[in-house]
Design a protein around this nucleic acid. Sequence first.
DNA 1: TATGATATTGAATGTCAATGTCATGATATA
DNA 2: TATATCATGACATTGACATTCAATATCATA
Lengths: 149, 149
Amino acid sequence: MKRLLRQIDSEISALGGKRSRSRASIIEVFFRSGRHLTVDELTSEVRARNRDIGAATVYRTLKLLSRLGYAKELDFGEGARRYESSLTAHHDHLVCTGCGNVSEFEEPRIERLQDEVAKKHGFVPTMHRLAIYGTCPRCLSPQPRETAE
Amino acid sequence: MKRLLRQIDSEISALGGKRSRSRASIIEVFFRSGRHLTVDELTSEVRARNRDIGAATVYRTLKLLSRLGYAKELDFGEGARRYESSLTAHHDHLVCTGCGNVSEFEEPRIERLQDEVAKKHGFVPTMHRLAIYGTCPRCLSPQPRETAE
DNA sequence: TATGATATTGAATGTCAATGTCATGATATA
DNA sequence: TATATCATGACATTGACATTCAATATCATA
């Protein structure tokens, strides 16, 4: 973790950037959470530690991480995009429409079929987005306690 | 086509709605286009026929078609959503990042694998979204004439 | 350390798609 | 045709995100 932060800092320096406490704080909270957060959610969590960090800075920091390849922008059509750490391998998403939780899966066979489809259409694919929407096991369970958000 | 418009009108009546020229015009242009349009694009095309139709009405009409099941809302993360006729069978999308054009494909094997994945995670799937992004054959061709925005 | 060049900050403001509001106009039915 | 009600277009508002700006923090150099 410390290691990761230092690595990111050095990349920023290499690009002519400078360090900042706000940014370090945002980056740390982001990677610690390990979830798929909206800017709004991350801002709340960051503010719980440091009251006076502006939302704009959270936006900027996530954009920065995304440019550097440490974060990925996700769009599940919820109106606000989510960010995830891109330290894990490639994967697609299961989105629960009940509680909003997002989990991940890998399925090489689907990947292969996608390439096949693209090729058949004379398309050169650069990326894809696959999300399966539905109800997660937790929300399906008989005693539907509080559903987050 | 006339048939379709009449069918939609009668459904609207059944729900306590009334007919209107603006709406009829919007619906007709939408289905005739056969493309995946943003509200903005559709508004332009509609205005070419009838100068004084407001954008709000186009929004409302597409929402209505969507509620009635005649149109589908699509979100390719472009900032504005697109609508497509839902008269054709289920399919996924190929999005050209060069010219913005959207084409369709069906791949039952992918569908099957998706259900399998969902089941494996204890998920009850209700829908999915799959878009493959890349460059279409036209944009790949040696003489890169004008690429429509 | 002190300095100065430059990056970063938070707040305010701008932008843009989408939706809400409302007075006016259109439509269906008695 | 009267009247009840829906639909319209103009305009305002919302909410996510980007941008601007003056103040401040950082860092290499003296």
